[in-house]
Amino acid sequence: MNSMYYNRKICNSLSNLIEDKGELRWLFDFVKNHNELDFLIVKNKSKECISIYRGLTKIISISQKNNTTIFIDSTNTYKKLVPSLYGFKNINENFQNEIVNLITQIDSNINFNRYYKNKKEGYFQNELSRKFGIRGNTDTDFVIIDKEAVIGHSSTIEKNNLFKNIKKKYKCLQRDISILDAKRYGKDLEKKTIGDELDFLALDKDGNILLIEYKHGSGNTKGIYLGPLQIGMYYDIFTNFPKIELETAVFEMLEQKQKIGLINPKWKKPNSIKEIIPVLIVSEFNYKSSAKTKFDEILQFSRKQLGASFLNNLQTFNYTVKNGLSNW
């Protein structure tokens, strides 16, 4: 029995709330018309919800309690700003004014700038998500199916058993890179945690699944040049997942998002899934930085250690608001 699972398609009753003519359709229109906001649909073993993000931070999540009631939640940080926004609501209640109040308070507090207003990681993640999602065209090269994508597991023990060898492989690579040149790449790299959430899972017009890792060019350069390890781990995890189950999940999520409008309804669905392609997108990369050179060095070193086929179909792009995607 396969203990892994992946499908972020939410139940129809929750999805219907923000679909055309749904009780919360006004909320869909509100988010679509606010460039700093975007949706994230979440489903796991414990919950199903529709979340609204501002850059990197979730400001509200909406779960359905019954046919007439929803529950709005977030972290205490945001609950303290506008307490009246959160808690149980009637599905016919319009809480737009409270959201506007929340956004206004966030915008006026410099402590929240790093999540969006500084126009770094959060800003560009939001930009990419909307460009290839809620604001996408009918002929866009790809669409974003999921954000913060994670393969689920029936238990923590099974998760650890299934992927301990994958994690061990990349921990060993981190150690070997430190040994190779600690001054150039950093010491004690094996202590560096590799995240387990893929930034974006996308689908292109040809039927390829794109595993997209995003980095900001002015951010932590170590995070950029160690990218092959992080991307490699995601690639191993998703290619270990049964292809037919992944295809089913991706197409079901695509269909639901198109029905809502989170992906352009006229974007043509491919007939089947072909390849899984690892992708790195760096926004506003400073070409005076050594990160690109180090990235290439670590990629080549990893291929010597793991085999020449390691990430041999990797695609890398630079992204700017003005020019869009270009080769990195």
Score class of each variant (00 low, 15 high):
213 E>H: 03
200 F>N: 05
25 R>Q: 13
113 N>H: 14
268 K>T: 11
219 G>T: 08
253 M>D: 01
306 L>P: 03
210 L>Q: 00
85 L>Y: 05
26 W>P: 10
125 Q>D: 12
75 T>L: 09
76 N>P: 09
222 K>Y: 05
283 S>D: 03
141 D>A: 12
313 N>Q: 08
25 R>T: 11
36 E>Y: 10
309 S>W: 06
35 N>E: 15
250 V>P: 06
166 I>M: 00
312 N>Y: 04
323 N>T: 15
251 F>W: 02
17 L>V: 12
160 N>C: 08
14 L>Q: 07
229 L>S: 08
313 N>W: 04
313 N>K: 11
90 N>F: 02
126 N>Q: 14
324 G>V: 07
77 T>N: 15
271 N>S: 09
290 S>M: 02
239 T>P: 01
309 S>P: 01
254 L>N: 09
214 Y>M: 11
66 N>Y: 10
63 S>A: 13
37 L>I: 08
151 I>G: 00
155 S>E: 06
6 Y>Q: 02
215 K>W: 01
65 K>Q: 12
48 E>L: 06
325 L>Y: 13
215 K>T: 04
6 Y>M: 03
172 C>N: 14
37 L>T: 08
299 L>Y: 01
253 M>V: 07
95 F>N: 02
137 N>A: 06
111 N>R: 12
252 E>L: 04
160 N>E: 14
119 K>L: 03
302 S>I: 01
307 G>F: 08
230 Q>C: 05
142 F>W: 08
76 N>W: 10
112 F>H: 12
90 N>V: 02
106 I>C: 04
180 L>M: 10
257 K>Y: 04
30 F>E: 13
318 N>F: 06
134 I>V: 07
307 G>I: 07
201 L>A: 04
323 N>L: 12
191 K>W: 03
17 L>W: 13
259 K>M: 09
245 E>R: 06
241 F>H: 08
251 F>Q: 01
68 T>N: 13
168 K>Q: 12
202 A>H: 00
141 D>Y: 08
111 N>T: 14
209 I>S: 05
170 Y>I: 02
234 Y>G: 09
49 C>Y: 10
110 I>T: 15
146 D>Y: 03
